[in-house]
Amino acid sequence: MVSAPQKLTTQELANLAVKLIEQAGCEYGDIRLCNYRTQRLSASDRSLKNLSDNVSSGFGVRVLLDGAWGFAASHKKTPEEITRIVNLAVEIAKGSRLSQQKPIKLVPVAAYQDKYVTPIEIDPFTISIGEKAELLLNINDRLLSYGEQGIKKAYSFLRFTKEDKVFASTEGSLIEQTIYRSYPGFSCTAIADGDAQSRSYERSPLNIGYEHIDKKDLLGNIDRVATEAIEKVNAPQWELDTKTTLILQPTNLFLTIHESVGHPTELDRVYGYESNFAGTSFATTDKWQKLQYAAPWINLVADRTQPHGRVLWLMMMKVYPPKNGMWLKMVFSMII
């Protein structure tokens, strides 16, 4: 009788990789084993437009051998493949060393053994597809109820992700992470006099469960969004020589801050590691405590401990000079 081969757990595979890296004589090495699930639903007008539920899985190994990096990856999580990929990473490190001018030396770090799971109330993947689709079609139906006033198109969506990751290193670290994200939103388009204008509403994507899909909030914004789209398409044409005051909502600054502050302060760009892919950075280390982004009263804060935050939370606070004896303060926040 032939028995099936014993399947190792993710932690056992991670420990195997670390052991093989150490046996190869590397001064450092690590492995990341990942499993990603992404579910997307979208509705256009009164029909479900898209439904996908995808799972991707794999692992990556990096080693530091004689001051040179070697990387390799695979989608097969088996002991045999772990062994092959570690050996491949070692060989790539040997090849990299041939053209390397200066050996890489890492700063010693403490070992961490920990586990983190996003605090959620409702697992979004336990909610039926039917219930999710019904919500989207209900939103669109209410938007299209403004058809006589000009709303001709409606769109709504739900997106959910779950990331399971295990990290292990030759330093002795073993870290497990399970991260959930939820993201709902909708939009509508009004048509009048040969013109089309849209308005939308989104609950910002957060690391949180299905409780983020607040039906009361989503349905409660339908009338406002539809009305604003109708007002927008019927608004008078702007005269170029007319002057007025333009009020920008905080959301207008999201992408500006993301691009001008978020990306330039990524260390791989600062040090030029991405110069052949996504550009370099003007915020280099020689400008530390010299480069001024904006006025002195503007503060930018990166805090990854913000509840439900995604990758990076940026907050900009602007304090205006006194007017009539009172200070005016505006706070803008975003999630990258």
Rank of each mutant, 00 (worst) to 15 (best):
N140E: 12
I179Q: 14
Y210A: 10
G130W: 04
Y201R: 03
I191W: 05
D164H: 11
A168M: 06
N140L: 06
G209R: 04
T170H: 10
E228Y: 01
L174T: 03
V166H: 10
R199K: 14
G147F: 06
F125P: 08
L143G: 13
G194Q: 05
A192V: 03
S198L: 08
P124A: 08
F167K: 01
A196Q: 14
K215T: 08
I213E: 00
G150M: 05
H212N: 07
A154L: 03
V166W: 07
L158H: 00
G194F: 08
R203D: 06
I222V: 15
S156F: 00
A226G: 01
A192I: 01
K216G: 15
A154F: 04
I208V: 13
S182V: 07
Y183E: 07
G209W: 07
K152F: 09
N207S: 15
E211S: 12
P184G: 04
P124D: 10
R181V: 07
I120V: 15
E171I: 04
A133H: 09
L136R: 01
K132L: 10
E171W: 03
Q149D: 14
L174W: 06
E131T: 14
K132C: 14
N221V: 02
E148S: 14
I175Y: 01
Y183I: 00
L206C: 13
A229C: 12
N207R: 14
D223R: 12
F157R: 08
Q177G: 09
G172S: 08
D214N: 15
G220T: 13
G130A: 14
S204Y: 04
D141V: 02
D193R: 13
D193K: 13
D195R: 13
T189I: 14
S145D: 15
L218P: 08
E202F: 04
I191H: 07
K215P: 06
P184M: 02
Q197T: 11
G194N: 11
I230Q: 02
G220K: 03
S156I: 00
S128I: 04
A192F: 03
A229L: 01
G220N: 09
D195Y: 03
G185M: 00
I230N: 05
F186V: 12
G185A: 08
P205I: 02
R142S: 11
E171K: 07
N140G: 11
L158C: 08
G194E: 04
L135K: 09
R224A: 11
T126P: 01
L136S: 03
S182A: 15
E211L: 07
E211I: 05
Y146G: 13
D217K: 11
G209H: 03
G150T: 09
E163P: 00
Y210K: 06
F167S: 09
R203E: 09
S182E: 01
F157C: 06
I213D: 01
R142H: 15
P184W: 00
G194Y: 05
L206V: 12
I139H: 02
F186C: 03
K215L: 09
G150A: 10
A154W: 01
I230T: 11
I179T: 15
K215I: 13
T178C: 10
I175W: 04
D141F: 02
A226Q: 01
S173G: 03
N138W: 01
D217I: 09
G185P: 05
R224Y: 13
I213T: 10
